[in-house]
Design a protein around this nucleic acid. Structure first.
Length: 544
RNA sequence: GCGCCUGUGGCUCAACGGAUAGAGCAUCUGACUACGGAUCAGAAGGUUGAGGGUUCGAAUCCCCCCAGGCGCGCCA
C-alpha cells in the first residue's frame, strides 16, 4: 500500500511534473503538509508564484483526501487532510502487521560491517557506538525487507599474536582458565615485554611466521585466545541486547589466504605497482597511495579490506556495503572504495558507504579515558549507567543518547542526563509506552472495544493520527540516509503528542464511539512506539 | 603543507535551499481527592563563529578568514 505522504506527493507530481518535496507543515495554521512546488516552477515559467500555485490548485485532484488546498505566503500550497482519512490511516497502522513500514520494492542484500572488537582486548568506548548504530541499521533494513548480513570484522589476525603466544608460553598460562579481562592484562604484559626486550621481540616476530605457516601449537593457542575473547564479547552483546551472533563473526583471519591473491591480481592487471619496494595503488585525489603490500612483504588492513569487499560482493552477493567505523577512518575507506572500483571488485551496481561517527567524550568534554589514561571499557560505561537506573532503562538511555543526535558529531557520555525521564531521552519514550499500555491494559481487562479510529474531533487526537501516518516514511528515510536520529526525533514527537492527547482527552472515562476511537488511537500509538523503539534496539516495557 | 568533520539561546541538540530558526535541560508561572504529576499548559531566553557572494528566498550552497577536533606510504 502506498503511504499517505507518498500518495499525496504522487497526485501533486502528476500535475506539477516535478517532485513536490512535500514537507510536514511548519505551523499548525498551515495545515498538515506544505509544498513549495509553485515557487520552484515559477522560476522556470517566468510567472508569479501565486499565479502558478492558483493554476496547480485548480488542477490537482485531492478532494478525496484533503480539504480544499490553500495558497499562502509567497506561494506555498498547504494541505489539510480530511479527518476521516486520518482516522482510516491510523486504523491501518493498528491493523497492518508492519504498522505502515512498507516493504521495499527492490530488496537488496546489505552487508553491514560493525562492532569489530579486537581479540585479547576488552570492548572499549569506540565499540559502543559501532555496535549500537550497526544494530539499529540491521533492524531497520530487515524491517524494510532487505536481506542483511552483519559482519563482525573482529581483529583476530596480525603481529600482536606473535607476542601474545610467546608470552603465554613463557608464563605457562592455561588459557582455559582465562577470561577476556585476563587476556587483556596478558596483552599489556606482552606489549611491555616487547618494548623492553629485543630478544623477546625477535621471538615474537618468529612466532608470527609460525602462526602464518600453520604451526599446530601456535594455531591452537591463537584459537583459544579467540574463544576466550568471543565469550567476553558475547557477554557484552547479551548485556546490550543486540542481534549479533557467532554466525555474524567474520574476522580478519578469514581473508588471510586471499591477501596474496588480491595483491597478485592487482599487480598482474597493472592496477598496483611496486614503488619504494611496496606494492601500491595510486588513486587520483589521494595524496598518498594505498599500500597493498609493504616492503617487508606484509599485508596491511587496506589489503584485508579489499579482500573483504571481494568476498562480500562476490560470495555473499551483497549489492550494498555499509561500514560503521569511526570518523577518523573516512580517508581510509574512501581510498579503499576507490581502489576497489578501479579493480572492479566494486561494480557500479553496488553501493559502498562508510558511516563515520564521532567520538564519545567524557563528562569533561574531553576524550574519554580512565585516570591511568587507558581507554574506558564498554562494560564500565554500562555499569556507570546502571548506577543511575535499572538495567533496561540504563541501556535504553545509552542507546537513545547515542542514536538521537547526528552520527558525525562527538557526544558527551553523561549518565545522569541520559537516564533522565524528562526531555528527549530513551526513558521518557519508555515511560510514554508504559503509560499508554496501562490505559489499554485496563480497557482490555474490562473488554477492549477499540479497533478503529473513527472520531478525531480534537486537535490533539488529529495530531497523534497525523504522526502515526508518517511512521513508514520515517523508517524508509532512516534506511536510505542511515540517520537514526530521524527516527528518534519522530518517536519523541509522537510520545509528546500522545502525552498532550491523554492530558486533554479522557479515554477510559469517555464513552461510546469516542471511547472506542480513542482506545484504537492509543493502541496504534503503543504499537508504533514499541515497533520504533525496537528498531532502535530499545526495549519497550509494559510497566516502569 | 594538503584534506575531512564540527561551530545554532546559559547547557545538550533539531531544522532533507523555503513561511515567524524548532525541542529538551536549567530558570520563572500555572494545573494534582490523577485513564500513574516519571506528566501537561505557558513565559523568558537567538545579529545560527566573523565577513563577503549566489538566489525571489541561506543555519543550509560558493569564497575567504577564526576557533576546536581528526586524518594524510609501508600499524590496524
Amino acid at each position: 500500500m502506498l503511504s499517505l505522504p507518498s500518495l499525496l506527493s504522487e497526485r501533486i507530481q502528476a500535475i506539477a511534473g516535478i517532485d513536490p518535496e512535500l514537507r510536514p507543515a511548519t505551523r499548525p495554521q498551515f495545515g498538515h503538509y506544505q509544498t513549495n512546488v509553485a515557487l520552484r516552477l515559477a522560476n522556470a515559467e517566468g510567472r508569479p508564484p501565486r499565479e502558478v500555485a492558483a493554476r496547480l490548485v485548480e488542477q490537482i485532484d485531492l478532494a478525496d483526501l484533503c480539504e480544499p488546498l490553500e495558497i499562502a505566503g509567497p506561494g506555498f500550497i498547504n494541505l489539510r487532510i480530511h479527518t476521516e482519512v486520518l482516522g482510516r490511516v491510523a486504523t491501518q497502522v493498528l491493523t497492518e502487521p508492519k504498522s505502515g513500514i512498507g516493504t521495499v520494492e527492490h530488496p537488496r542484500t546489505v552487508v553491514i560491517d560493525y562492532s569489530s572488537p579486537n581479540v585479547a582486548k576488552q570492548m572499549h568506548v569506540g565499540h559502543l557506538r559501532s555496535t549500537i548504530i550497526g544494530d539499529c541499521f540491521t533492524r531497520v533494513l530487515r524491517a524494510q525487507g532487505h536481506t542483511v548480513i552483519p559482519q563482525n570484522h573482529i581483529g583476530d589476525w596480525g603481529r600482536q599474536f606473535g607476542m601474545l603466544v610467546e608470552q603465554i608460553l613463557e608464563e605457562g598460562i592455561d588459557l582455559r582458565a582465562l577470561d577476556l579481562a585476563g587476556a587483556e592484562a596478558l596483552y599489556q604484559r606482552a606489549n611491555a615485554h616487547l618494548q623492553s626486550s629485543t630478544a623477546f621481540a625477535d621471538r615474537a616476530r618468529e612466532r608470527v611466521v609460525l602462526l602464518q605457516g600453520g604451526d599446530a601449537e601456535t594455531r591452537q593457542l591463537w584459537q583459544q585466545l579467540i574463544e576466550v575473547s568471543k565469550a567476553g564479547f558475547n557477554d557484552t552483546y547479551r548485556r546490550m541486547n543486540v542481534v549479533l551472533t557467532d554466525a555474524d563473526l567474520a574476522g580478519e583471519s578469514i581473508y588471510n589466504d586471499d591477501l596474496a591473491v588480491v595483491a597478485a591480481d592487482l599487480e598482474d592487471r597493472g592496477v598496483a605497482v611496486v614503488d619504494d619496494g611496496a606494492l601500491v595503488v595510486f588513486v587520483d585525489g589521494f595524496n598518498a597511495p594505498a599500500i597493498i603490500r609493504n616492503a617487508a612483504g606484509g599485508f596491511g588492513y587496506t589489503c584485508t579490506d579489499l579482500a573483504a569487499i571481494r568476498h562480500r560482493v562476490g560470495t555473499l552477493r551483497a549489492d550494498r556495503l555499509i561500514y560503521v567505523v569511526g570518523a577518523p577512518q573516512t580517508y581510509h575507506f574512501e581510498q579503499v572504495f576507490a581502489v576497489a572500483r578501479l579493480a572492479g571488485y566494486l561494480p557500479e551496481t553496488v553501493t559502498a558507504q562508510h558511516v563515520g561517527f564521532g567520538q564519545v567524550l567524557g563528562a569533561d568534554g574531553k576524550k574519554f579515558s580512565t585516570r591511568e589514561g587507558t581507554a574506558v571499557t564498554l562494560n564500565s560505561l554500562l555499569d556507570a549507567a546502571e548506577r543511575e537506573a535499572a538495567p533496561a532503562i540504563a541501556l535504553a538511555a545509552i542507546k537513545y543518547a547515542d542514536l538521537s543526535s547526528g552520527l558525525q558529531k562527538d557526544y558527551t557520555f553523561d549518565a545522569q542526563r541520559m537516564v533522565a525521564t524528562t526531555g528527549d531521552t530513551g526513558p521518557y519514550l519508555q515511560y510514554a509506552h508504559a503509560r499508554v499500555n496501562q490505559i489499554l491494559r485496563k480497557a482490555e481487562a474490562e473488554g477492549f472495544d477499540g479497533d478503529a479510529v473513527t472520531v478525531l474531533a480534537e486537535p490533539a487526537e488529529q495530531q497523534v493520527a497525523l504522526l502515526l501516518s508518517r511512521f513508514g516514511e520515517v523508517v524508509a528515510a532512516v534506511g536510505e540516509t542511515l540517520q537514526p536520529h530521524r527516527l528518534c526525533g519522530y518517536l519523541y514527537e509522537l510520545a509528546g503528542a500522545l502525552s498532550s492527547f491523554y492530558e486533554q482527552c479522557p479515554v477510559l472515562k469517555s464513552g461510546g464511539d469516542v471511547r472506542a476511537s480513542r482506545l484504537a488511537l492509543c493502541a496504534a500509538t503503543r504499537k508504533v512506539l514499541a515497533t520504533g523503539l525496537d528498531l532502535l534496539g530499545i526495549e519497550a516495557p509494559e510497566r516502569m
